[in-house]
Computed example of a mutant assay.
Amino acid sequence: MNFFRSADRPYFEGWYFKHQTPQRQTLALIPAFHIDGGGRPAASLQVISNDKSWWLEYPAEQLQVSRKPFQIQLGQSRFGTQGIDLHIQEKGLSLQGALRYGPFTALRSDIMGPFRFFAGMQCSHGVISMGHALGGTLELNEAPLDFYGGIGYIETDRGRSFPSKYLWTQCVWGGPERGSLMLAIATIPLPAGGFTGCICSVFYGGREYRLATYRGVKIEAWSPAAAVIRQGKYRLEAKLLCERRQALRAPVEGRMERTIHESLCAEVRYRFWRGKDLLFQHTDPNASFEYSPAG
């Protein structure tokens, strides 16, 4: 699919592929396309490791996207429901190899709920897989990464710009009490005012718990290092304990001009209550955490 032939307004769309090894090595990839206010298209790939990030630019014609089946071709690399196949050789970055994905854990419904129908939304979020098994190996600058027995996560964003102020955290873990969660809080501008919105999905014990503004969630607190939300008898707390931030680029009216900072491998403690019962407490060194103040 060619996104660029009829562009008449700023737009971006990107996909976030996160991969974790059992040895706590993590790699995320963000293929994306963007169209500025002048209708000029471009494509990009951001690569994030435990301790470094890279930004790669591509001509727009080197990007092809299929919705069904979901597949992205960017340069010589492919991303899709079956896995990824990478052939990247740039100055300062060599990334080669292939990973295969197990079945995706999909949400029951769109995480945006009725917000997906708001034409004026600055940015819309999507979750493609809350967790899936990994197999295969990659070589990052001649260092091997073994993802056999690992776990992955995929989400997407699209719109004109990232919110001016937002918090995002994500975590997926295996073992006997496996689980996954994604939480995002952001200021949402609208033509007539705006509001602070929240979307959250928690997978635990074989079921999904959905907490969101459109379901009556209350944001009790959010800051650069923590968030607390409550919906009825459910309460989720996320607390950042340690972070290693990497600089990334984010869209402003379709242009990738904003610098944000994400901790791909942050240590975050999550606690989730149902009434007075603590359903789980999980502290993970491979959690992702990002907070961007209004600027």
Rank of each mutant, 00 (worst) to 15 (best):
residue 86 L to K: 02
residue 260 I to P: 01
residue 186 A to M: 07
residue 121 M to K: 07
residue 227 A to T: 12
residue 210 R to P: 00
residue 119 A to H: 13
residue 152 G to L: 04
residue 96 Q to F: 09
residue 163 P to E: 05
residue 145 L to P: 05
residue 71 Q to C: 13
residue 23 Q to F: 08
residue 18 K to L: 03
residue 198 C to S: 11
residue 109 S to R: 15
residue 232 G to C: 08
residue 125 H to P: 03
residue 204 Y to D: 00
residue 125 H to Q: 09
residue 81 T to P: 02
residue 176 P to Q: 14
residue 82 Q to N: 14
residue 116 R to S: 15
residue 234 Y to A: 04
residue 151 I to P: 01
residue 280 F to V: 02
residue 22 P to M: 05
residue 139 E to R: 14
residue 79 F to G: 13
residue 223 S to Q: 15
residue 146 D to W: 03
residue 58 Y to N: 06
residue 91 K to V: 14
residue 102 G to Q: 09
residue 215 R to F: 06
residue 63 L to W: 14
residue 263 S to E: 05
residue 37 G to L: 07
residue 274 R to D: 13
residue 114 P to Q: 02
residue 183 L to M: 09
residue 66 S to P: 01
residue 54 W to M: 06
residue 218 K to G: 00
residue 227 A to C: 15
residue 293 P to E: 15
residue 136 G to D: 11
residue 270 Y to A: 01
residue 38 G to F: 03
residue 271 R to P: 00
residue 247 A to K: 11
residue 217 V to E: 01
residue 222 W to K: 10
residue 33 F to T: 03
residue 75 G to A: 12
residue 126 G to A: 13
residue 145 L to G: 04
residue 172 V to M: 06
residue 269 R to H: 02
residue 66 S to G: 04
residue 260 I to A: 04
residue 167 L to A: 10
residue 199 I to Y: 01
residue 158 R to C: 02
residue 194 G to V: 08
residue 125 H to G: 04
residue 104 F to G: 09
residue 273 W to K: 01
residue 168 W to L: 10
residue 262 E to K: 08
residue 86 L to H: 00
residue 285 P to T: 07
residue 69 P to Y: 14
residue 115 F to C: 04
residue 288 S to Y: 00
residue 38 G to D: 12
residue 63 L to N: 10
residue 289 F to N: 07
residue 191 P to K: 08
residue 133 A to Y: 05
residue 111 I to G: 06
residue 8 D to S: 14
residue 263 S to D: 02
residue 121 M to V: 09
residue 68 K to V: 13
residue 143 A to L: 10
residue 123 C to N: 12
residue 233 K to V: 10
residue 203 F to A: 07
residue 141 N to V: 03
residue 59 P to G: 08
